[in-house]
Design a protein around this nucleic acid. Structure first.
Length: 996
DNA sequence: ATCCTCCCCTAC
DNA sequence: TAAGGTAGGGGAGGAT
């Protein structure tokens, strides 16, 4: 795409900004392409600005689109016929939200044919029905704001109406998600109004009835209790009444600034808030407002604030609002949308042998890139703008620091470039026409673009919404002169050398600003000069891969192939604009919202991930407020990550882990200028589900802990490698094989419901997630079965009932010594590394040891390797106190590869030395006792670091030990649940780590 | 040797 | 005012 990268360099922007300050005053007046429409809000803007009224663009655009629609409709045979009979959709005006089947274009055609209207932009004054196939959670949560009380119905409604040749009630076609929501919605409407009129009842009323006086459009905009009025009437009737030009124009003018893009529109909430001000029962009688309503009121208040200022300081929903308006977000997420929409074509190609080039044919690749896409899409509807300098930007404020996103060629002739501040662009080109983004149109054009490409070529690599590679190797006859490599598109094969020789290195793909500067400092600026540098020297300076790339590219060698399907490796969300926090609460709120966003994105892609990485931008010391309004300015970036054993897309664990990671960074929230959250180590939910199901059907995996069944050969292979020992990293949850993880989940029937019930809600939720939603129903079932009893499954043996396996499957940190894995969840709490510093070394209490560790006959569960992968993981203070025979057992059973790796051929000697060294350290500390100043997690850490490995089935002692531990844990949970949830988390972490 | 984390760079 | 995202790749350095 022709997107010039955003100007992250504030230095460049600031210098150019200040340098052009004077020029701005001298710029000549010019008139914009659009007639200006009265708008009281913008009346202060200079009349001579082509963009004096930003909303006028939308007014004009809507008008134009409507005219086009009318023109097309007038030629349609099914429009109002001579006998005066109207089409079935007469009075219906649809707005299609998001991707639908049939497509928005097809729906538009139906409207065209049958007397309806199709609105490209949402306006409460013109739209009667929102057509939508799927409603994401974000919209569900804010349904009221999203729908503005208009019916949200499936596209099938349109099809069925056409099939039935009459207008059917839309009620049965409501989205399933909305059926319950609607009733809630009605209550909410009732809350805001005295009338409490429900829309559902009226929705079935024939279209042409229930006509009501107009003027609500205006009222609804800024003053009146819009929800009450609109929901009371059929939307069609409502809008039909605005048929007169004057009214329409007024509505248009008002709605022009409310371009309805993807997510719910904050403005509607704001209006609701305004309307509430006119509803005394709402604002004045606070005693009548219950908690829920208080929250609603507070949400509305917050949303209103969001309209006034755009930063995290005042907008609690900043994350959502921000992404809706971000062009870079649009660009960055486009590919995911493309993958979804064209998934069938992509999978066809993936499985097709026709695309495999046998190697005998020279590859032929076409590169297609649309010029200044963002501008071109806008300009295509305005031929009068074609020869004028036009740029796309969020704002036309001449004083502002809005960034030009895309400029057409006439604008470029004046030196206007993407990434430039508007004021600088205007300084260079005073009559520059600024137009706003139209993300919906970009999406639409990109869809058309790729539909065409896929129709003509079955090997299409989408680079962005406007740029693609086509591998046409199998399409060409051999007579065609097409480039061999992606790198060399448009270059005559025989002129490659000449072309490259003088080519600036920065023109090569993969060489950006940093690499270009680095090369420049070595007096290398052209490919010719780069060729003079030896490969070895390049390796030395840039590393192997980048060195190779430089060496190859400057010679025109490029081994990349056109890749149709690219694996997703990470999913995340970053916000580096508008981020300012006054206190930790604001920051936490932001983080939680960011987690929600990422969770939704994961779910949207059907992916779950194990590594959570938090990235924080902190204002550099001495850096001043950036010139760019609400920009991040000069920052230092830091990132921390955590890997959990089981992949997740659930917001609850994401939020908790993010909190922990954030706490480990110890950043002053006032200095934060940007935050990002990425999830990696991804797995497809579908594939994972299949694998888990596979593991579930293995009887031995279900009952292995009972020792009732012998493991089959197959199941053994899951746990044990060929040498009979477990993978060396089995104790490290972050690196364990997936097979181990999926198989390790205990069957539901082995969970102790008492213990489960005593867990914090969020942990239960996470466990439920791991069990694919089966845990909660199972808990309820148990509840019913026991008649509210103790929650144990009566049919199970005591040993089974007491098993604590269930508790083990919590998220697990990387290494116990890593403080970030156990950072505090609340401010003011010491993180556990600090805690451990104070407490360690902890001597394990007798109660634990007697049951768990001191029995030399004690054995770990079958097939689970409990040995540390390294002796450094063992707590030597514990090891030293063991009976000699047990100690000998441990040393004996230490796998040779582990010991040898660390200490050569003398594992025994190393252990001895290790013990001695720690003995000296420990002598400084008094022995501690359980609950006094010891923590169970520390005890677990000690004990679990040396438990022996065995392949025998569970011994009676082990069952007893586990039974005692279970009881102990229950008490501990009760003790700590209120005061130290983090400690409980740590305990479960260790239990999980031991696969207990 | 291999993997991991953190960080940087790059393209769109 | 204004919306400086997203994701892949690679290097350095450390752990195992």
């Amino acid at each position: 795409m022709g997107f010039e990268s955003p100007s992250h360099s504030t230095a460049a922007a600031s210098s150019s900004a200040s340098g052009n300050a004077k020029k701005r005053k001298t710029r000549s007046d010019s008139s914009g392409p659009f007639p200006r429409v009265r708008n009281p809000r913008n009346s202060h803007r200079p009349k001579n600005s082509p963009f004096a009224d930003f909303g006028s663009y939308m007014v004009e655009k809507n008008k134009k689109l409507r005219e086009q629609f009318d023109s097309a409709a007038s030629t349609s045979s099914l429009q109002e016929s001579g006998d005066g009979k109207k089409g079935i959709f007469d009075g219906v005006s649809i707005f299609v939200d998001g991707f639908t089947v049939p497509s928005s274009q097809e729906l538009k055609a139906y409207m065209l044919k049958h007397g309806g209207r199709f609105e490209n932009y949402f306006s409460t004054c013109t739209v009667t029905h929102i057509i939508c196939s799927h409603l994401p959670d974000s919209k569900m949560r804010n349904f009221r704001a999203f729908s503005r009380s208009l019916p949200v119905v499936k596209p099938a409604w349109v099809l069925d109406c056409v099939a039935a040749d009459k207008l059917l009630s839309w009620v049965p076609y409501q989205l399933h998600e909305l059926v319950n929501k609607t009733s809630k919605q009605q209550k909410l409407s009732a809350f805001f109004s005295h009338k409490g009129i429900l829309s559902l009842k009226n929705a079935e009323t024939p279209v042409n009835q229930n006509l009501k006086p107009d003027a609500e459009c205006l009222l609804s905009k800024d003053e009146g209790p819009r929800d009450t009025v609109l929901s009371a009437e059929d939307p069609v009737s409502e809008c039909r009444e605005h048929g007169s030009d004057d009214d329409d124009k007024t509505c248009e003018e008002i709605s022009s600034e409310e371009k309805f893009t993807d997510l719910e529109d904050e403005h509607s909430v704001i209006r609701a808030s305004d309307s509430s001000l006119h509803t005394p029962s709402y604002m004045d009688d606070s005693s009548c407002i219950d908690n829920k309503n208080c929250k609603e009121a507070s949400d509305i208040k917050c949303a209103r604030a969001s309209n006034q200022s755009h930063s995290t300081l005042t907008d609690p929903n900043f994350v959502e609002n921000y992404f809706r308006n971000s062009r870079l977000h649009f660009i960055g997420t486009w590919r995911n949308r493309y993958r979804k929409r064209f998934s069938s074509m992509l999978s066809e190609v993936k499985g097709s042998k026709a695309n495999i080039n046998s190697g005998t044919q020279k590859p032929a690749i076409i590169h297609i890139d649309m010029d200044c896409f963002f501008v071109s899409v806008i300009v295509r509807n305005y031929p009068e703008l074609i020869d004028k300098p036009v740029a796309v930007c969020h704002s036309d404020n001449p004083k502002g620091t809005a960034e030009i996103s895309s400029a057409n060629y006439p604008a470029r002739d004046y030196g206007v470039r993407a990434g430039m501040f508007v004021r600088d662009a205007k300084a260079r080109c005073p009559h520059l026409v600024i137009v706003p983004y139209d993300f919906e149109a970009y999406e639409e054009v990109a869809d058309q673009f790729y539909t065409i490409l896929h129709n003509h070529c079955n090997k299409v690599q989408a680079l962005s919404c406007d740029e693609a590679f086509l591998d046409v190797t199998v399409c060409v006859t051999g007579c065609c002169l097409l480039p061999y490599y992606i790198l060399l598109f448009c270059i005559d094969y025989f002129k490659v050398d000449d072309y490259l020789y003088g080519l600036p290195v920065k023109a090569l793909p993969g060489i950006g600003h940093a690499l270009g500067e680095k090369l420049k400092s070595r007096q290398v600026q052209t490919c010719g000069q780069l060729r003079m540098v030896s490969k070895e020297a390049l390796h030395m300076d840039f590393g192997t891969k980048i060195g190779d790339m430089l060496w190859n590219y400057c010679r025109g060698i490029d081994s990349r192939m056109v890749e149709v399907v690219q694996e997703t490796k990470s999913i995340g969300a970053d916000v580096n604009w508008g981020v300012r926090f006054d206190d930790i609460t604001d920051c936490q709120n932001f983080l939680m919202n960011l987690c929600k966003e990422v969770s939704l994105r994961l779910q949207g892609c059907g992916m779950q991930g194990r590594t959570i990485t938090l990235k924080v931008k902190r204002r550099k010391k001495g850096a001043e407020e950036p010139i760019k309004f609400m920009g991040c300015g000069d920052c230092e970036t830091m990132s921390r990550s955590m890997t959990i054993p089981v992949p997740t897309d659930n917001v609850v664990p994401l939020q908790r882990i993010t909190k922990q990671i954030f706490a480990s960074l110890h950043i002053d929230v006032k200095e934060i200028r940007g935050i990002g959250l990425q999830i990696s180590k991804l797995e497809s939910v579908d594939i994972r589900r299949q694998e888990v199901s596979l593991a579930d059907v293995e009887p031995q995996t279900k009952c292995i802990s009972c020792g009732n069944q012998q493991a089959s050969e197959h199941s053994k292979s899951i746990y044990i490698n060929e040498t009979g020992s477990c993978p060396s990293d089995v104790n490290q949850c972050s690196t364990r094989s997936h097979e181990n993880r999926t198989s390790a989940l205990p069957p539901l029937c082995h969970l102790d419901m008492d213990v489960i019930k005593s867990l914090p809600g969020e942990i239960i939720s996470e466990m439920n997630d791991m069990y694919k939603g089966e845990l909660c129903p199972f808990m309820e079932k148990c509840e019913e079965k026991d008649g509210g009893g103790d929650g144990h499954l009566s049919a199970k043996s005591p040993a089974e009932n007491d098993t604590i396996s269930a508790l083990c499957y919590q998220r697990v940190g990387c290494d116990t010594s890593e403080n970030m894995t156990v950072g505090p969840s609340d401010s003011g709490k010491l993180d556990s590394s600090a805690r451990n510093k104070d407490k360690q070394p902890l001597c394990y209490p007798a109660v634990c040891m007697s049951n768990l560790a001191t029995e030399s006959k004690m054995r770990a569960p079958t097939l689970i390797d409990l040995m540390p992968s390294s002796l450094t993981q063992a707590d030597a203070s514990v090891l030293e106190q063991l009976p000699e025979d047990l100690k000998a057992d441990i040393i004996e059973s230490l796998p040779a590869h582990r010991a040898v790796n660390s200490v050569g051929n003398a594992p025994h000697g190393f252990v001895r030395a290790f013990l001695n060294s720690v003995e000296v350290q420990n002598s400084e500390y008094p022995e501690t006792h359980l609950w006094a100043n010891g923590l169970l997690s520390s005890i677990f850490q000690s004990i679990f670091s040396f438990l022996p490995s065995t392949s025998e089935s569970w011994s009676e002692e082990w069952h007893e030990a586990l039974s005692s531990l279970c009881e102990l844990l229950k008490q501990y949970v009760n003790l700590k649940i209120e005061s130290d949830i983090e400690e409980l988390y740590n305990c479960f972490r260790f239990l999980k780590r031991q696969e207990l």
